[in-house]
């Protein structure tokens, strides 16, 4: 009985330490963002919330000159959402089509092509960032949403996941659909896409978070303030802090950080059932 108690206590102690370790920095960032600039400058990071929550967040989100010179927090939020959603949808569409071609159309180079796509996993964006920039700027797409999203949406991971999923769909479904007079598009839209819906949801969620957190590419791509995403905005606001001048607005930097983490967290919380389903279950 005693042993059992000790084991329970020690397990919980480890879990509690883990939880604190993960969540305390986020909490400190939030608590600090609710104090005034002077208070933070004098007393450092804060563990308890202060009284300036509404005024700080209001200024960051809605007041011109609150964070950047011209752009509002809501604009950056909008830009980030466009990037996150466009990135996720683009990746899912492209990788589903690629996987569909590789699995269902028996052209001769299907397998080598798949492996070439797969190998691009080894090449991160950073490797091809200069040629990508050249192409996008040559097309005159700098500072546009299209230029921001399109170069990122090819996805080896997504193609791989969908390929594995399509391979597990019984051949008889394809044969039945062919006898039922379905065209290749018909089979894809009517049968394959509905069958993959949990898979699609899972990949959408992962990719939204990845897209939301994109840093290097938007940083290079965007030159005008009105195209900044939240992540870029955070970087800029810290730069302003470092350059000095007036009183450093630490509370706004923290507020922006909190705002930047919220949407991915919400997406995962709201869709976590779908997410888990997509990863563990396949209804066929």
């Amino acid at each position: 009985m005693r042993n059992w108690n000790w084991r329970l206590i020690s397990t919980h102690a480890i879990l509690i330490v883990g939880v604190l370790f993960m969540s305390l920095p986020v909490w400190v960032a939030f608590a600090t963002s609710t104090h005034s600039a002077e208070h933070i400058l004098r007393n450092g990071l804060q563990i308890w919330p202060g009284g300036d929550f509404l005024s700080t967040y209001n200024e960051v989100l809605f007041v011109e000159g609150g964070v950047m010179k011209a752009v509002l927090g809501t604009t950056m939020l909008k830009n980030s959402l466009i990037l996150g959603i466009g990135f996720a949808i683009g990746k899912v569409v492209i990788s589903m089509l690629a996987a569909y071609a590789i699995v269902y159309f028996r052209f001769r180079l299907a397998l080598p092509l798949f492996w070439i796509i797969f190998m691009t996993l080894l090449l991160p964006l950073e490797v091809r960032i200069i040629p990508s920039y050249e192409v996008v700027s040559g097309l005159g797409l700098l500072d546009t949403h299209v230029g921001l999203i399109v170069p990122l949406i090819a996805s080896a991971t997504g193609t791989f996941f969908f390929r594995q999923f399509f391979l597990s769909v019984p051949d008889e479904l394809l044969e039945a659909a062919r006898l039922d007079g379905a065209t290749p598009w018909g089979f894809f839209i009517d049968i394959l896409v509905p069958l993959s819906k949990t898979m699609i949801a899972a990949i959408l969620i992962i990719m939204f978070v990845v897209g939301w957190n994109q840093y290097l590419w938007p940083l290079i791509m965007t030159t005008k303030e009105e195209n900044y995403t939240l992540v870029i905005g955070i970087k800029q606001i810290y730069q302003i802090l470092a350059e000095g001048g007036e009183l450093p607005q630490y509370q706004k930097a923290f507020a922006l950080t909190i705002l930047a983490t919220l949407p991915p967290v919400l997406v995962v919380l709201v869709f976590q059932n779908w997410f888990v389903k997509g990863l563990v279950e396949s209804e066929k």
Partner: peptide, 15 residues
């Protein structure tokens, strides 16, 4: 103009 019945039925599971 032929119709086939498959061993494992091959029904579309989502319909």
């Amino acid at each position: 103009d032929v119709a086939m019945v498959f061993q494992n039925y091959a029904l579309y599971p989502h319909m």
